[in-house]
């Protein structure tokens, strides 16, 4: 029997007054799945995130997190299952130290101090923030504040983790740090839904692409096939990331979209020895 979905939308729709933001969107995400939510500005991505986190309820259809219908739960209750980091999360920190900020979520969910401490430590460790734990969040550069906000969501150890543009302002090393922490979290069975314009990061970190176009679901397929298809991406305001463009241009076998795979394929075709 297949695992029951961690997240399921059935013909979900939402309108802001007369303006339809989402129409009849259906998909399911299984535990352990890593999904990119793509589309141009205004395609409905942020609205979908608000539906999944329970900040909005669908006008039509249903949104379920596990067996919970989001309409039956307040956002703070839904937070037991859905962790989220919004855009500009670096501005949402409020505690006096990074550790306190990361501890806030699990404490609010009612866990004991020992469990709160464990979760905070694990989340800080996963993002290499342990050395900054005692600092005031606003003494950190914005990029590390972004990581601190993500640590706060990881500490909830949610079954569904929803991130909105988690890599803005991060350099390559920090993006790799985020990718590593997300992989670890997903390996424990969480479902991951990431809204991003950073298609390079999506290619490296996620497996499945869901594309919204003017509130409708345009594509739902493996990122590896989607990102190599410039002619399908273009009308959606998307551009293949560099590795996908390189694979297509050089006709690399299997059209890899991840740097490591592309490097290995390139080495094989060229008869070179890839770097370890």
């Amino acid at each position: 029997m297949a695992l029951s979905p961690a997240l399921q939308l059935d013909a979900a729709g939402f309108s802001y007054g007369a303006v339809a933001a989402l129409s009849a969107v259906s998909f399911a995400v299984a535990p352990g799945e890593r999904v990119a939510l793509l589309g141009r500005n205004g395609a409905g991505k942020s609205t979908l995130v608000r539906l999944v986190t329970g900040l909005l309820h669908p006008d039509e259809g249903t949104v379920r997190v596990g067996d919970w219908d989001t309409c039956d739960y307040a956002p703070e209750d839904l937070a037991r299952r859905v962790g989220s980091v919004f855009q500009h999360a670096d501005q949402q920190l409020f505690a006096r130290t990074v550790r306190e900020d990361v501890s806030f979520g699990p404490r609010a969910l009612g866990y004991g101090e020992r469990e709160v401490a464990r979760r905070a430590s694990d989340a800080l460790e996963a993002l290499a923030l342990t050395a900054h734990a005692a600092q005031h969040p606003y003494d950190l550069p914005p990029a590390l504040r972004t990581l601190a906000a993500l640590a706060g969501a990881l500490a909830l150890e949610p079954a569904v983790l929803v991130l909105d543009e988690p890599t803005v302002g991060l350099d390559r090393a920090l993006r790799a740090q985020v990718a590593g922490a997300l992989h670890e979290h997903v390996a424990r069975g969480a479902a991951l839904l990431v809204v991003t314009h950073d298609l390079g990061f999506a290619a490296e970190t996620l497996d499945r692409g869901i594309v919204l176009d003017r509130g409708h679901l345009a594509y739902d397929e493996p990122l590896a096939t989607l990102l190599a298809s410039a002619e399908r991406l273009k009308p959606l305001g998307l551009v293949p990331p560099a590795v996908a463009a390189l694979s297509v241009a050089l006709e690399l076998p299997g059209l890899p979209v991840r740097e490591r795979e592309a490097a290995h394929t390139l080495a094989r075709v060229a008869g070179a020895q890839p770097r370890p």
Partner: peptide, 16 residues
């Protein structure tokens, strides 16, 4: 230093 373009990085990682 992680500041090359993606294409340069892939080329380098391929050992070319």
């Amino acid at each position: 230093a992680g500041l090359g373009t993606t294409v340069a990085g892939v080329w380098r990682a391929a050992g070319l």
